[in-house]
């Protein structure tokens, strides 16, 4: 029994002639928080989209939780235990917080009614409050619809959704890119909660302070390739920037960029 939760070998994605991602070898251990950094177009989001099945990879293998996987779509990935917060928040604006949290996995009663089975609003509300409490997210009124919420609250709802349900791996794609200081702090608190609970996380972020604060390891992408794999304790911001800009390339990735 290994403690590797996710492993990719030679993961490659071409969009026509564009090599968005080439030969990505990546390992994530149980309980580990890893940041993925890199310039725009470096292949970070592409990498995540291949893992979560949003797109189908050109070549390479993905092993998740000890098994080789081939997700046909994000739903399959979620069923397998990968929860993702996408850059474009997948929230329904006209629904309130519990509805969004439980979208697609509602708690229902009278299941013999098939598609017309009844919603158990009380149970979902209760579970939502517990979930929000666990993740320390403060939303004043969970009956408010998403469209009446600030960007930070929306982001918190999206993240609380991934954190409310038991998952084996959480992926966040720039969760704080559009947020203010206070809201960013809330999101970071959620991430710390995940760490405490021992849930592994892949965090895509541009925020160096945040990355240095939160994660164990930093993987740098450049021009569709992984160019560095750094332990947080053995590196510093300047070092990481050098890899991001291409001034430096990791020893084991010679010739990559």
């Amino acid at each position: 029994m290994t403690d590797i939760i996710l492993e990719t070998k030679g993961l490659t994605k071409h969009y026509g002639g564009v090599h968005a991602l080439s030969d990505a070898d990546f390992v994530l251990h149980k309980g580990e928080h890893v940041a993925i950094m890199g310039d725009n177009g470096a292949g970070k989001s592409t990498f995540v989209r291949q893992i979560t099945g949003v797109e189908q990879r050109t070549s390479g293998t993905i092993r998740f939780d000890g098994k080789e996987v081939n997700f046909s779509g994000p739903i399959r990935a979620r069923e397998a235990g990968i929860e993702t917060v996408f850059q474009t928040l997948a929230l329904a604006d006209d629904l309130n917080v519990p509805d969004n949290l439980f979208l697609g996995r509602e708690i229902t009663m009278c299941n013999w009614l098939g598609p017309f089975r009844l919603l158990n609003y009380r149970a979902m509300r209760q579970a939502t409050l517990e979930g929000l409490e666990r993740t320390a997210v403060k939303i004043p009124n969970i009956n408010n619809t998403i469209q009446n919420m600030s960007g930070g609250q929306r982001q918190c709802v999206a993240i609380a959704r991934t954190a409310t349900f038991p998952s084996k791996l959480t992926i966040m794609d720039e969760p704080t890119a559009a947020l203010g200081v206070q809201e960013t702090e809330q999101v970071e608190n959620i991430i710390r909660t995940l760490k405490k609970a021992g849930d592994p996380l892949i965090l895509i972020s541009h925020n160096m302070r945040q990355v240095m604060d939160l994660v164990d390891r930093i993987v740098v992408f450049r021009r569709g390739r992984i160019v560095a794999n750094l332990n947080r304790d053995e590196t510093d911001g300047q070092d990481v920037v050098a890899y991001i800009t291409g001034a430096k390339t990791g020893a084991e990735y010679e010739g990559a960029a």
């Binding site: 996408f86 474009t88 629904l95 979208l103 697609g104 009614l113 598609p115």
Partner: peptide, 27 residues
Amino acid sequence: FVLKYTLYGKHTYAIGSNEDAARMSGI
């Protein structure tokens, strides 16, 4: 009653509100 208190109703609102979100949520 159907629109307000059943799965069918909730998913109808969800799809109209954000079809991509509904799809990504497994509906």
